[in-house]
Simulated assay, not measured.
Amino acid sequence: LGVGWLALLAEAPPSSDCVVFGIHPRGFAGHMARSPQVTRYYLECPPGDDPDNWSHDRVWSELHERLAADGARPLIEGELIEKRVLAMHNYVVEPMAYGRLYLVGDAAHLLAPIGAK
């Protein structure tokens, strides 16, 4: 079980000055600036998906669709320089203590894609 995140790095200037998340019927999408010339994107995908299933055209089509919103700036496309699928598991460790040892912070929960690296 779980969720896959297609993690992408594009040689493209950020389309927004802030982090952008999109919730869409086809899945989550994320946009995060890394530098003035490079942007990190995420697309929710089936766990274990093969990055080769995601062509340049398919990636940008899904990003445009999932990040579309009234008033949003259009995405600036660029060459995809990194493409990999990260496995995200959806489970909760319970109880979050063992004797006097307590799980807190990152050890007790999953991080959002923005903090996953």
Rank of each mutant, 00 (worst) to 15 (best):
L101F: 06
N53G: 01
K117D: 14
Y98H: 06
P113W: 13
V93Q: 06
A69S: 08
A33N: 07
R66P: 00
L6A: 11
V85G: 08
S61E: 10
P36N: 03
E79K: 04
P46G: 06
H56F: 09
E44N: 00
A69R: 02
E62L: 12
S55T: 12
N53Q: 07
D52M: 05
I23G: 02
L75I: 11
S55L: 05
V104A: 06
G115L: 04
N53Y: 02
H64E: 05
C18G: 04
A112H: 09
P25I: 09
V19T: 02
H24K: 13
A69G: 06
H64T: 03
V19A: 06
G115Q: 07
L80W: 12
P47F: 01
A87H: 15
H109E: 06
H24D: 09
V92F: 15
G30V: 03
A7F: 08
P113I: 05
R100K: 00
W5Q: 14
R34D: 01
G78M: 08
L1Q: 15
A10P: 15
D17H: 07
A108G: 02
L75G: 07
W54T: 00
R66M: 01
M32I: 03
F21P: 00
R73Y: 13
H64N: 08
R40D: 02
V38M: 09
A87Y: 15
P74A: 09
L86G: 06
A33T: 10
S61G: 03
A69L: 04
P51Y: 11
V92E: 07
M88E: 10
R73K: 13
A112Q: 10
W60Y: 07
H89E: 04
G27M: 10
D49K: 11
L86Y: 06
P14K: 10
P113E: 13
I81V: 15
A112D: 12
G115D: 13
P36C: 05
H24Q: 09
V19F: 06
A72N: 12
L75H: 11
A72I: 05
M96V: 11
F28S: 05
G30I: 03
H109L: 10
L63G: 03
A29Y: 03
P46S: 13
S16V: 07
A12D: 05
R40G: 03
P14E: 07
R26M: 06
T39E: 00
L8R: 05
A69Y: 01
H24R: 09
D106K: 12
Y41C: 05
G99C: 12
L111E: 14
L111F: 08
E44F: 00
P46W: 04
M88Y: 14
M32D: 07
V59R: 02
W60A: 03
G99K: 04
A10D: 15
F21I: 02
V92I: 15
F21E: 06
D52T: 07
R100I: 01
P51I: 11
H89L: 14
P47I: 02
G105S: 03
P47H: 01
L110W: 07
A108D: 02
P95R: 10
L9Q: 12
L43D: 00
Y98V: 08
W60I: 00
M96L: 11
G27F: 02
G78S: 12
L110D: 04
E94P: 13
A97D: 09
I114P: 05
L80T: 03
L110P: 05
H24Y: 05
G2W: 15
P113H: 12
L103F: 09
N90P: 14
E62R: 14
H31S: 02
S35F: 08
I23P: 00
E82L: 14
M32E: 09
G22L: 03
A68D: 06
